[in-house]
Write a protein that binds this DNA or RNA. Structure first.
Length: 348
DNA sequence: AACTTGCACAACCGCGCAAAT
DNA sequence: CATTTGCGCGGTTGTGCAAGT
């Protein structure tokens, strides 16, 4: 499967690319466009495997690839995004125009990770090292083990999470969430705000901001777990609009339902009432079916617990959940309730 | 000057997913 | 429905260079 052994084929070059090879690849792609990587080397007259060509193009030759030193702002952004997304470099790179996932991964491993460690911050959890508190209340998995992706279920979950995260965290929207995070940090430094209405987001660090709002949602049997996986895989949400000045956004939750499915009315709009609570159950209460809900400053800030949590399923497998406020759990619940014919397609 | 160490960068590699067959 | 193929992702390794000893 895949392209195992791609680099081992006799006669194919490995290692650093020459200027001549770069030119051949560039000229070919300019003429024929990207794609067809497997056959590209032959057509372009390159003695490389297609995979190597794709990598060279994506990380080096592609127009718009920004080269050179990362700015302090970019580095800060990487740290912020890593705290939310973990080692999901491709998603992180979408928030740094011109930077490739490979480049970001490199700078993280070679510089930022060590910098955090020197500052006494665990680069995996983004928590101070002297804090023995686990990252989440249901996190029973050793984080380093998790990082290494040592079990199949975790690897699979990471894949799933990527998909979910990519859809739940569209480019640009993280800025809002990040702003909120900064706000929360400021809050803890003495800048009390009335918008923080009694929730427990008062600590510094991801752990305090990231809570599992309705763990019961994922308390499931083996078969339910499997079902949930597939449902989660098919779920999505979409930011319809985002007004940074007003700090509001409209989120569409749902999929392109089977035309025969009447449970998915189009154009269904639900106005989120102003609520003080942070919990996803609020969304659960309000959003009983897929649709669009409007998040304004108070309720969105109150619910934007951006988190990457490890959920332990009934079957012992552990998978990740990205929670943006209650949106994730809400979406998940919606999918759980949907008839089978409504699953499996993605809105766009 | 020679050697070691650390850093930055580029590329390799294996795996899993989804579309195609 | 099973298998194959193409691709993208993330972890790891290799290499060159600069700074330190």
């Amino acid at each position: 499967m895949g392209t195992i052994g791609c680099y081992d084929v006799e006669g194919l070059r490995k290692g650093a690319w020459t200027a001549e090879e770069d030119k051949k690849l560039l000229v070919y792609i300019q003429e024929h466009g990207e794609g067809g990587w497997r056959s590209l080397p032959d057509k372009a007259g390159l003695k490389r495997c297609g995979k190597s060509c794709r990598l060279r193009w994506a990380n080096y030759l592609r127009p718009g690839v920004k080269r050179g030193k990362f700015s302090a702002e970019e580095e800060h952004k990487i740290i912020e995004l890593h705290a939310v997304l973990g080692n999901r470099w491709s998603i992180i790179s979408r928030h740094l125009p011109g930077r490739t996932d490979n480049e970001i991964k490199n700078i993280w491993n070679s510089r930022l990770k060590k910098r955090l460690a020197k500052m006494g911050i665990n680069p995996v959890t983004h928590m101070p090292n002297n804090t023995s508190k686990p990252r989440s209340k249901s996190n029973e998995l050793d984080l380093n083990q998790h990082q290494a992706g040592s079990s199949l279920s975790i690897s699979a979950s990471a894949q799933l999470l990527n998909k979910v995260a990519a859809k739940l965290v569209p480019s640009g929207f993280l800025d809002t969430l990040k702003s909120w995070q900064y706000g929360q940090e400021k809050l803890t430094e003495g800048d009390e705000s009335s918008t923080n209405t009694g929730n427990d987001n008062s600590g510094i660090g991801i752990d305090e901001r990231c809570r599992i709002e309705s763990p019961g949602t994922m308390n499931m049997s083996n078969s339910a777990s499997t079902q949930s996986h597939s449902k989660m895989a098919s779920m999505s949400s979409q930011i319809l609009s985002h007004d940074p000045s007003a700090n509001t956004c409209d989120i569409k939750v749902g999929n392109t339902c089977n035309p025969e499915c009447t449970m998915w009315p189009s154009g269904n709009t639900l106005e989120m009432p102003r609520v003080a609570s942070t919990s996803s159950w609020v969304l659960d209460e309000i959003v009983t079916k897929p649709g669009v809900f409007h998040c304004s400053e108070e309720n969105w800030q109150g619910t934007s617990s951006v988190s990457i949590e490890d959920y332990s399923c009934g079957d012992g497998s552990i998978y990740d959940i990205v929670g943006i406020g209650g949106a994730y759990d809400t979406v998940s619940n919606i999918y759980t309730q949907l008839p089978e014919e409504c699953n499996g397609t993605i809105i766009h």
